[in-house]
Amino acid sequence: MTTASTTTTLTAQPIDPARLDDVRRNAEDGFGNRFVAFAASGEGEPLRCCLRYARAGEQIALVSFAPFEEASVWREVGPVYVHAERCEGYADRGLPDELRRGPRVLRTYQADATMNYDHNTLVGDEDIEPVLDRLLAEPDVAIVHVRTVLPQCFLYAVTR
Rank of each mutant, 00 (worst) to 15 (best):
T9A: 09
N26A: 14
A4S: 15
F68G: 11
Q59V: 05
A61C: 08
A157P: 08
V82W: 10
L150T: 15
P14M: 00
Q59N: 06
I15D: 05
E43Q: 13
A37W: 02
R160E: 14
E85L: 07
L106R: 01
F38K: 12
V149Q: 14
N26P: 00
R147F: 08
T3E: 12
R52D: 03
S72F: 13
E126P: 00
F68W: 14
R34M: 13
C50S: 05
P17G: 01
R160A: 15
M1I: 11
V158A: 08
R48P: 04
A4I: 12
S5Q: 07
P139K: 07
P17L: 04
R160I: 11
A54T: 02
R34K: 13
V23R: 01
M115Y: 10
C87P: 03
L95I: 06
V23H: 02
L136F: 05
A111C: 11
D16I: 04
A56L: 09
G102H: 00
F35R: 02
M1A: 12
V144K: 02
W74V: 13
D118N: 13
R19G: 03
A66W: 10
V149K: 13
V144N: 01
A91G: 11
R48K: 09
G89I: 01
R34D: 15
E58H: 04
R34W: 14
D125I: 03
P67A: 10
C50F: 00
A54I: 02
D133M: 03
P96F: 06
V158C: 09
V36S: 06
A56C: 09
S5T: 13
V77Y: 14
T3S: 10
N33D: 12
D127Y: 07
A66G: 13
R24F: 01
F65N: 06
A4D: 13
Q110G: 12
R104T: 00
G42R: 05
